[in-house]
Amino acid sequence: MSLPDGLRNTSQAKNWVDSLPLSYKYSAGVSGQRFAEGLKQGKILGSKCSKCGETFLPPSLYCPNCFVYSSEYVEIPPYGEIYSFAEADGKAIALIRFQGVTGGLIHVVKRPSAGKLKIGLRVSAVFRPAEQRKGDLTDIEFFEIRPHT
């Protein structure tokens, strides 16, 4: 096998340095707007499909299974369960699932002062005080472990 005889000392390679500065302003979307309004009021909103009855979180304009418009937005009680979690840099992020709901939320979980985080622990959402809420995911400050679980 003979390799092409390229430049052996790549430190000599001529290069050009340029930057492509781009920034973005993303639309919340129809269902995203409702979700954001809900958070601002201290509520977690999901969407419900009238055809299959499934409830989705985050809410969706349409049911991805039936491919029809969602019929309503429903309030989901802020009590979930840790489905799995990741820990690094002193922080823990978990996928939190809610009973009877398809999907879930990825959010920060506050570590318990005693004991460890575990899959299956029951958690509840802690909202920021109303005057601090901005209508985005950080309106939930974190999820905390519910006592006696």
């Binding site: 993303y26 639309s27 919340a28 979307g29 129809v30 269902s31 995203g32 707007q33 304009l61 349409y62 491919f67 029809v68 418009y69």
Partner: peptide
Amino acid sequence: MLETGKEMAFEASR
């Protein structure tokens, strides 16, 4: 549009 790309794709497809 307020709609996200996904939502627009859904509306046209539906």
